[in-house]
Design a protein around this nucleic acid. Sequence first.
DNA 1: CTAAATTACTAACACGATTTAGTAACACGA
DNA 2: TCGTGTTACTAAATCGTGTTAGTAATTTAG
Lengths: 351, 351
Amino acid sequence: MAVMTKTAKKVNKRPSMKDVADLAGVSRTTVSFVLNKKPDSAIPAETQEKVWSAVRELGYRPNAIARNLRAQSTNTIGFISDEIATTPFAVRILQGAQSFAWEHKKLLLTVNTGGDPEIRDAAVNMLLERQVDGIIYATMYHRQVNPPQQVHEVPTVLLDCFVEDRSLPSVVPDELTGGYQATKHLLDQGHDRIAFLCEERPVPARIGRMAGYKQALTEYGKPYDESIVVFGSSTQSSGREMAQQIFSQPNHPSAVFCYNDRIAMGTYDVLRDLGLSIPNDVAVIGFDDQDLIAADIQPGLTTMALPHYEMGQWAVSHLLDLINQDNFDVNNSETPVQYALPCPLIKRNSA
Amino acid sequence: MAVMTKTAKKVNKRPSMKDVADLAGVSRTTVSFVLNKKPDSAIPAETQEKVWSAVRELGYRPNAIARNLRAQSTNTIGFISDEIATTPFAVRILQGAQSFAWEHKKLLLTVNTGGDPEIRDAAVNMLLERQVDGIIYATMYHRQVNPPQQVHEVPTVLLDCFVEDRSLPSVVPDELTGGYQATKHLLDQGHDRIAFLCEERPVPARIGRMAGYKQALTEYGKPYDESIVVFGSSTQSSGREMAQQIFSQPNHPSAVFCYNDRIAMGTYDVLRDLGLSIPNDVAVIGFDDQDLIAADIQPGLTTMALPHYEMGQWAVSHLLDLINQDNFDVNNSETPVQYALPCPLIKRNSA
DNA sequence: CTAAATTACTAACACGATTTAGTAACACGA
DNA sequence: TCGTGTTACTAAATCGTGTTAGTAATTTAG
């Protein structure tokens, strides 16, 4: 019986370094030195070749798990995202993070919480158990978050979100400058009165874009006119309602800044129904540069792009910096960097 | 000097099982038994409590890397995706895969190849080095793929794609039935002549949907009329051109099946310009149930949904099955299952 | 009262790498 | 000839678990 168990040992096991060493007729240590090209180990070319040919013959592939255990680092980054809504933004964020991570030979271990705090906490624990080198905590729209306390155990970067006490580094879109530039773009074209179809909830994006709108107006000596600022939700149908309110008046403004591209779409519908041409009768500028909308509608929508890809890249880049300055300290007293990435103007034909 | 290095040992290391054992005054083995609730180990409640309180005091968290090394399994699934285009579909696929994996305590190690074959091959290698239990190979639109040979080393499932020789299990949308049901839906409403605005490249989706279109026509005894089938690319602007061709004629059909929702959007534009109402003058049906389009345009677009979320779920589910039937064998001769998931009809107001 | 069974543990190996410390063999200079 | 340095390696410890085999102490059965 005992013999049985011995012989019943799995046959097709993947080869280990030991197998390579045996085949090459050297020690495991030597194999390790050769594979890792240890600089001061002085292994003659002949021996190296023996090792490499054994590697090839066996189809040997190093076991990263064993290596990670020994090295006490996994080259893995935990990526936690909410993703309450299915936004195309998510893909850009992930792509940015992925591509940067890949270039630095890191992989992403991803979890969606679906907005569930229980999953969120469990996810952080799971990632820590798996010894991730760091964590990216991402949201799909700009907002405040409350990640579990444990994230402080490893370097962590917030992506498209922030914590109230600023105790974690964060990267978000520069909504204020975005709102400012959108408005300025319209003002520069000589528009005097610029309507603003705005999100009604006081989310960070709305606060920033509104502040930018006001700042531009002030800079150009124009008044903030409440009668041409309307609030609603960020949907196409709400956009239709808001646009209706503004543009069914005889004395309507000649330009409109839409809080986002979906509202802009609704605005397009209304303007078309009213027989107003874009941009001749009314100039329209959006926000988000939303895929499948902005570039495809007629005329192409001029809009401010959200730097999702870039935020993904920045987050991983900054995280790797934190990981590398291995004096990572829980009690570091400096305020972590809070970065706001610019939203570039995408000029198309609507303004 | 030697003393220095000894004392300079990292202080804030995470506690290991050894630390818990020391604090609780028991052996490491006992701790392991308690934590894993070994059924036949007979540890009295008192001792268990000692262990648990030591765990709490130290904030001990098991090291999954060590565990995985020992267990020879990582509870990790590699998820490789192309993602040439930024489609919202990607999110649904990932969500489906993630949620199912999470429910089964698996995590996803994700890589985007961006369509680069070099990255694709490197990614597979990297995942195999990390000892993933299995691989999901996903594309963001239905097509044929050529993954590297190495994927055969672990259980692998293809998602939204397939290989020519059917040597890997695969899940894709049932395009044929989708095209059939879309057409049938229009026929059932009494439409006699149904235009088809179709993708021009012979991709699997086009082949399937076209076959379904023809099948429905045949079933209802209607001829396939080449004059009302137009080909173009799958964009809104191409949709406009195709729709123009069909609906600027005086004797135009009363219904149109659009290959996808973007083409349907272009069709909406044309019908509006021609003063034709949807669905009274022309019934429109799309395909894809694309977020931010289908539900938002006016009137809401009736369309066939692509089962992205479900494909994600199915892929992981099937992969776990393959992993669990541990008689996984490279030389298994049965043809792996090729599954086609139905595309449900989403009834809105355009048809 | 003794043998067997049960209880409550622990020592030690294994997983597959990396790395430190060391050794044997040889060359070279003084 | 001795000591030193270099070359070409290797033994053994280590990372943090899971698990098998075993043992000492106590309880139970006969």
